[in-house]
Design a protein around this nucleic acid. Structure first.
Lengths: 294, 294
DNA sequence: GTCATGTTGTAGCTTCACTACATGATTGAC
DNA sequence: GTCAATCATGTAGTGAAGCTACAACATGAC
């Protein structure tokens, strides 16, 4: 198949009339242009130029090919321009993975903002736990992950995954209204409580048994809304983060813990996609949603 | 500017999904394809592919560029196809130079035939003497020349000019009706005649003074029609070729010469343009016109 | 004729692209 | 869990291709 350099040479000669001028336009010597033309003629088996006095003249075939060369070069230009524009455009599809409470408390606002500011971007969301999120990110099933990272159960970020801190979310102990504990306390003092926690394997569950060795939760439910109902019924206590926490029902009370249990909220993406404008725009939108939440 | 080979690699990967298959399609190793992609990414400053399990997945930018690559490659294909079609098509513009009597006796038929058989070909004609014809040919002012070549004043064909014989044209001595010579004669026996010839510098004039040393024509007119009128008026004799000779007026007679003065009718073209279909078609048309003339 | 302007061929250097092979990652079967 | 199959990619080496500098040649103006 024809080489682009040859077409450029032919097109330059067609435009500038002489090999010398074409060479200047292409930033090379006339000899190089002449050689390119000779090779193009050999490769196409066609006479493209003829001598005309001191200069050259294109044959019919040369003019024909030069016209097509112009189209080819224009198409290549378009491709480059489109790519350059793409580099600066928030576009395409962005799928986000996020942990449950972020899905409720942050993503609706962030995705709405993204959609309104960048109509060319289409978005998707899946709820995941942090491990699933990193996996999905790594495998390319999602483009961005919003993860909660408990220091005590620190996440391991695989190579090729970049992450940045969005902020810190504090969790409180939630107890039934008539509970003996008030004001603030430490986890150690709660050792004998009946615990309500997420299911085994869930990071909140992991965190609890890590932070409070020996704890054996009696109730395993995922949704905080349900946990709160169980607490209100006096069945136990739970540690529930503030982000996305439902309005507290009657019959429960907040007890602050010291030290405060905190989880880091993290945004992660593939380093390979770091330059993508949609990623950066999504980070901005998430920060905006985070600020609004606080 | 983007290189075609790289675009081909990207397009193949987009089509075949794996570097391996793309390599097979492009008849090279997967390593080569991989290197091309890596260079394309470096050159564009864009991430085009991402790992996806054992294979690859194109990024948004990759898909975008692959789409454009498809257009570019299609445009290049069109260019090649157009050139190939052009190679087999009698098209463009063909300018012919011919000597005076050929212009009258051959070219009308030949050009008419060319025009009717090849509507895409546009033609032009200029009347020249053989030297002018070769010059015009050499300089590219015309694409084909029809020349008369008197053996005694043989033409010199510059390098790069090809020629082929079309046929031989005989000339006769034309004398007033009452002239002493009849039947046939030799030029030597006409030494004392009053000569009517073309202008100095014209090849017919050159030929006469070369063949008949010492001859000093008294009348110098270019057109044979006029020469015949002068002969009919009894003012002299002339040697007039048969090709394109006007109908003889009253008052003149043909005297055959021995040996017969003959000129070779030649078609010439630039070797560089020899492969052009229009040149070959024009030769065929001229041969047809020549056969018709005889 | 001489000079300015152009094209083109040649030798040599540099760059580029490809292959062969090795390495590393992932998947699915057992 | 291990192993084999599949695939991408990095590296070293090799051969080809492109470019430059220079020379040779052609043309046109004066």
């Amino acid at each position: 198949m024809i080489d682009l350099g040859r077409l450029r040479a032919l097109h330059a000669v067609a435009s500038y009339k002489t090999v010398l001028a074409a060479g200047q336009a292409l930033h090379c010597t006339p000899s190089a242009v002449s050689q390119q033309l000779a090779k193009l003629e050999r490769e196409t088996g066609t006479t493209l130029v003829e001598k005309d006095g001191r200069g050259l003249r294109l044959t019919e075939a040369g003019r024909l090919l030069a016209q097509h060369a112009e189209r080819v070069l224009a198409t290549v230009d378009e491709a480059e321009a489109a790519l350059a524009a793409h580099r600066d455009t928030v576009t395409g599809r962005l799928t986000v993975a996020a942990f449950a409470t972020a899905c409720r408390a942050l993503l609706p606002w962030a995705l709405h903002r993204l959609a309104s500011e960048h109509p060319q971007l289409s978005t998707g969301l899946i709820e995941v736990n942090p491990h699933e999120g990193l996996e999905a990110l790594h495998r390319g099933h999602v483009d961005l992950a919003v993860l909660d990272d408990w220091p005590e159960v620190a996440l391991h970020y695989p190579a090729g995954i970049a992450h940045v801190e969005l902020g810190w979310d504090t969790a409180d102990l939630i107890v039934p209204s008539g509970h003996r504990l008030t004001g603030s306390t430490t986890l150690a003092k709660c050792r004998d409580e009946r615990w309500i926690a997420a299911k085994m394997g869930d990071i909140c569950h992991e965190w609890l048994v890590r932070v409070q060795p020996g704890v054996q939760p009696d109730f395993h439910v995922v949704e905080f809304e349900t946990q709160l109902t169980l607490i209100a019924a006096g069945l136990g206590v739970a540690v529930i983060p503030r982000l996305g926490r439902p309005t507290l029902p009657e019959g429960v009370r907040v007890v602050r813990l010291t030290p405060e249990p905190r989880r880091k909220i993290v945004i992660a993406w593939r380093e390979a996609a770091a330059a993508r404008p949609a990623i950066k725009a999504a980070e901005r939108a998430l920060r905006s949603a985070w600020a609004q939440h606080r």
